[in-house]
């Protein structure tokens, strides 16, 4: 039967090319479309809806290089029915994909400015695309700093890549863990601690923050203490998304539909809401 491409609720089938275990319950899949046609281009920070046959659909941010949209790359943590279903799939299995959806990190706005990327936990996944883009267009930006906080050294995502980025002379990379293991030689303490020690010109800095909501809230407060204006801080929000096109209403956050007005939002627009519970 003919499938209409213009129905935004219809997925395309992608085959799992390769899967890689990242952490205990976190894995990365690379995907190629079954129809062998082009993969849509995406902007850093956007997400796709991934569908497991008979189980359901979840939003997952894209973690690949925007300059090379093929294959499609997603890092997924198994926490619910669908993500557990995804974890059970082997290479060669088919999944449905809709997207990309949502607002991107405002990279064009960051050109000529210092760029401060702050990731917490799995929040590094949507910022990895930004790292790829920035490294490929390094001259377009001033100082580039990545601050990454993880739960423990074992919970650090993309650890080898972080080491690789740290070796770049024109990138500042600082990593910290909430809880160290004995062999850990690096920094211990919450990620907000790293902000005051990073080198950036607050008036000319764009900060992209991604992680658990509580982490983003305290990072944004710390950034403001360091005199980064709220207009220059961007966060990536997460809410329950069912349709990703603003129809189902599930992902509402005050006036915003996180699926289409977000996930990336300027901090000053959500600052007051972030202070309120159960919005």
């Amino acid at each position: 039967m003919l499938v209409e491409r213009n129905d935004p609720m219809l997925p395309r089938w992608y085959r799992i090319q390769h899967r890689r275990e990242e952490l205990a319950n976190t894995f990365t899949v690379t995907l190629e479309p079954q129809d062998h046609e082009d993969i849509p281009v995406f902007d850093c920070g956007q997400f796709n809806m991934l569908y497991v046959f008979g189980v359901g659909e979840i939003p997952i941010s894209i973690s690949g290089d925007p300059a090379h949209p093929a294959p499609l790359i997603h890092t997924i943590r198994a926490v619910g029915n669908v993500s557990n279903g995804l974890q059970g799939l082997k290479s060669g299995a088919l999944i449905g994909v809709r997207g990309p959806f949502g607002t991107p990190w405002p990279l064009a706005l960051a050109e000529g400015k210092d760029l401060l990327l702050i990731a917490g936990g799995l929040g590094l996944a949507p910022l990895r695309s930004v790292m790829y883009h920035v490294i490929a267009h390094r001259k377009a930006y001033g100082r580039v700093t990545l601050l990454y906080g993880a739960r423990t050294p074992e919970d650090m995502l993309y650890r080898q890549e972080c080491e690789h980025w740290r070796a770049h002379l024109d990138l500042d990379v600082a990593v910290t863990v909430d809880r160290a293991t004995e062999s850990w030689r690096g920094s211990v303490g919450v990620v907000t601690r790293l902000i005051a020690h990073a080198l950036f010109d607050p008036a000319k800095t764009l900060a992209f923050v991604c992680g658990p909501e509580v982490m983003m809230r305290f990072c944004a407060q710390e950034l403001e203490k360091c005199r980064v204006p709220g207009e220059q801080i961007f966060i990536s929000m997460e809410r329950n998304m069912k349709c990703a096109i603003g129809f189902c209403g599930h992902c509402q956050y005050g006036p915003f539909f996180i699926c289409k007005d977000g996930p990336v939002l300027p901090y000053y627009q959500v600052k007051d809401l972030l202070r309120k519970r159960e919005i």
Binding site: G56, K242, F247, G249
Partner: peptide
């Protein structure tokens, strides 16, 4: 009111 959910029936 327009909110919906999507369920899979297998």
């Amino acid at each position: 009111c327009f909110c919906t959910t999507v369920e899979d029936v297998i």
